[in-house]
């Protein structure tokens, strides 16, 4: 077992982990943070997308043992901080989530795009989200929700 000490959603966490424990299992099984989902466990589907040291990453491709000293933010953290409450409201208004299994990862990816504060086209939004699979919506409503949020943010002084 390997000792690690890290910050998760602003809280100090100290644990011992098996070397093979990946971050998504660490969050879900050891910390009870079940908002991030294990969809494929080989880094393709994006359902486990979360933020490590300020950048979005795949929770299923990172070993928890490698995260001593890291700063991890999950969907729970980003929801509580209110960073993307406008984006989340746009998801509701556009019905940009159906079964919702991909949604936390999708929100984490879109949050990074919003943080870049650019003016992407719909095509560029689609490209940005293309590492996150959604099996229900066909993506259009998600693109709409992100576009709506970008537009309303850029309209604000």
């Amino acid at each position: 077992m390997i000792p690690i000490s890290l910050t998760v959603n602003g809280e100090k966490v100290v644990r011992h982990v098996e070397p093979r424990r990946h971050l998504i299992d660490f969050l879900r099984l050891d910390l009870g943070l079940t908002g991030s989902h294990a969809g494929c466990e080989h880094g393709v589907c994006g359902a486990c997308t979360l933020r490590v040291n300020g950048k979005i990453m795949r929770g299923c491709l990172i070993l928890a043992a490698s995260l001593d000293g890291a700063d991890v933010v999950t969907i729970e953290g980003i929801s509580e901080s209110g960073e993307v409450s406008d984006l989340q409201a746009a998801f509701v208004a556009r019905n940009a989530a159906q079964c919702g299994f991909c949604t936390p990862g999708m929100v984490m990816t879109a949050a990074e795009l919003l943080a870049e504060a650019g003016t992407p086209t719909r095509g560029e939004i689609r490209e940005y989200l293309s590492g996150n699979y959604c099996r229900c919506t066909g993506y259009q409503a998600i693109v709409d929700a992100v576009e709506d949020t970008l537009r309303s943010r850029s309209a604000k002084p």
Binding site: R28, T34, G35, S36, H37, A38, T74, I75, E76, S79, Q88, F91, V92, A93, N95, A97, C99, G100, F101, T103, P104, V107
Partner: peptide, 19 residues
């Protein structure tokens, strides 16, 4: 009418069987 289920989905507060 927006779905009342969606806020929990976008906040990671849904409960799937594995949860």
């Amino acid at each position: 009418v927006p779905r009342p289920n969606v806020p929990k989905l976008v906040q990671g507060r849904a409960t799937y069987t594995d949860d």
